[in-house]
Amino acid sequence: MIEITTTRHNPLVDPVLSVWSWEIPVYLFFGGMIAGMMILAGINMLKLAKGERAESFYSVQTPLLGFILMNLGMGALFLDLAHKLYVYRVYMAFEPHSPMSWGSWVLLLVYPVILVSALIRLPQAWPWLGERAPVLQRLSDAIVASPGKVKLLGILNIGLGIGLGIYTGILLSTMVARPLWNSAILGPLFLVSGLSAAAAMVHLTASLVPGHPAPRSFLGGAFAMLVQPLGERPPEPRTADGLVKADLAFLAVELVLIGLLFIGLASSSASHVAAIDLLTSGKYATIFWWVVIVAGILVPLALQWLELGHRIPHTILPALLVLAGGFALRWVMVGAGQASHMIAATGM
């Protein structure tokens, strides 16, 4: 029997660490989703650069969707900062051992890549702007006309996307003090979860956002998947199936990674074992089991499986569930992870 008392009573730290509230999960969620979108877009850009008919991959993102989501995420991140006036300090230094410093600089690179990628379709998606700013049209044309540039852009999207996606997990996993996060699986898990969220988001916007008539040009169709709702409405079945297939794979991998995370923690120290309890039987258990696992992964897996077999029609329900599950995963991991703490070998 051990009784421990402490007189410490610092706000946000006691009785359990709760320095990060909704802002960080929102930031991690959008960050992961954008990472996924960039990877998906990058893959298609590479196909395109090789001359494949990548236009068939239907995308309904507006040119600035990524930019807008990015700003939402960064806005949430900014709201979380306690010393806001000093935020510029993060770009006055590069700390090679700090994942957050890496992340900050990656984010700084992500922005121009997203904007340049958007630029490609901006003049057409937003003809009004294209007519008034011919320079945008010229820049857009210059990229589109050069497979090398498209390839480079694709590589940049994929590279930064992977970096961004993994970073959101690594940021947490490097903290030895928080046993629940203390797993290298967290990076890949957040990356795959980001990919599934990206596929869901693309699917969702394709279905919900009123699109322009699909452009006739080769390039217009090709880039539609990246930047604007320029596809056919409703999406052609092949495209929809492609997204669903991808999502099935992402969700399946995500489930495996969560399983591996648990196995890893369960076979580790007492602190890590106790950390699992926080998810599976503690305060966060209900949301973890019902929202993250059942509603966020199992149900969409089942629904999309049936959709692929054309036994039920395509709906936006799986996409909505995947997005909810993706956010819940981050919310639960951030909350429970903070609550998890090291237990002294001697029994503290």
Binding site: M1, I2, I4, T6, H9, N10, D14, P15, G347
Partner: peptide, 25 residues
């Protein structure tokens, strides 16, 4: 005393009452 955790038969408590309340009052 505030309960921190009851896992593994452990009791962790704080000699003063919780966190936020103190700071805000």
């Amino acid at each position: 005393m505030e309960q921190l955790s009851r896992r593994r038969f452990l009791k962790i408590s704080a000699a003063t009452v919780g966190a936020g309340a103190v700071g805000s009052q």
